[in-house]
């Protein structure tokens, strides 16, 4: 496996804020890596270091074995602009050709437009595009130079379901054609749809770096909401990993496996009513995950002291 990018003990501070804290990471050729974390976790900072836009406060970064802040190093890197950034008066064809001319062997405009569903829009000025169309154009620009490594920052935020699926399909086809992709998101769904390997970051640290299914097991929690007079007994049920009292007097239980938890609840004979089950949001899952990580760190500190 060729290493395309490597971060070695990278820390980046902005004044008093530590955006990345001693992060080491390798990105090898051939996979789609999902970078998952809540807003402000350090995902965008990590990408901007790989793009050469910023330099680390300490530690080293390598892109294709070189320094990402040197323009020639970035010849095989593909990035997306924010979709609001596209120059409003340029036509879609012009934007694609403009960016393509930075690379040795750009994808022909017609071919790229076909791939990302832009063929009918080539003559439009980007200012006249809808949000979804602009987003497709932004993502397409990342692939115009036949990059070896593509960095996609929140590629489908704000898109409807159809637009999102179409874009995911296009990214997957590009990956099959040989591009390694790093995609950031705070949507678990997006990471599930695209990534094979998942890196979970929070507060500038890497919490988890593992295969998709292993990470899903850790962050995918179900929430059971119910009203019961015997709250303590319900919290103590096997399979319940966390709980939270709600303002209306009901109780929320967090469980990894909702089916098992419901069976246990019924079998226990605890009286309850108004049961609803839903998936925990990523934010809620992260709270549990980070709490676990912090507990683990505290644990290891204690052991060291002992």
């Amino acid at each position: 496996m060729t290493t395309l990018a490597r971060l070695d003990r990278v820390t980046r501070r902005f004044g008093d804020v530590t955006a990345l804290d001693d992060v080491s990471l390798e990105i090898g050729a051939g996979r789609i890596v999902g970078l998952l974390g809540p807003n402000g976790a350090g995902k965008t900072t990590l990408l901007s270091l790989l793009q050469g836009l910023r330099r680390p406060s300490s530690g080293t970064i390598e892109l294709f074995g070189g320094d990402p802040s040197a323009p020639s190093t970035r010849a095989h890197l593909g990035c997306t602009p924010q979709e609001t950034a596209l120059p409003a008066t340029l036509r879609v064809r012009e934007v694609i050709e403009f960016i393509g001319r930075h690379f040795d062997q750009p994808v022909p405009t017609a071919e790229l437009a076909e791939e990302f569903g832009l063929t009918a829009l080539l003559k439009r000025q980007t200012g006249a595009l809808s949000g979804g169309q602009r987003r497709r154009l932004s993502v397409a620009l990342a692939f115009v130079g036949r990059p070896k490594l593509v960095l996609l920052d929140e590629p489908t935020t704000g898109l409807d379901v159809d637009g999102r699926r179409a874009l995911w399909d296009a990214v997957r086809r590009q990956h099959e054609a040989g591009a390694t992709v790093v995609v950031t998101s705070h949507y678990l769904e997006e990471i599930e749809a695209l990534a094979q390997r998942v890196v979970v970051v929070d507060r500038g640290r890497v919490l988890v770096d593992d295969e998709l299914h292993a990470v899903l097991d850790q962050v995918e929690l179900r929430m059971l909401r119910l009203t019961t007079p015997e709250a303590q007994a319900a919290i103590a049920l096997p399979g319940v990993v966390d709980s939270r009292p709600e303002a209306d007097g009901s109780l929320t239980l967090f469980a990894r496996d909702a089916d098992t938890a419901v069976r246990e609840l019924v079998a226990s004979g605890i009286p309850f009513r108004g049961l609803t089950v839903r998936g925990a949001s990523l934010e809620e899952a992260f709270l549990t995950l980070t709490a676990n990580a912090n507990a683990a760190i505290a644990e290891s500190l204690k052991e060291n002291q002992a």
Partner: peptide
């Protein structure tokens, strides 16, 4: 404009 940081990610 956020277009400027994007242009700075290109090999230019």
């Amino acid at each position: 404009k956020p277009w400027d940081p994007y242009l700075r990610t290109l090999p230019v």
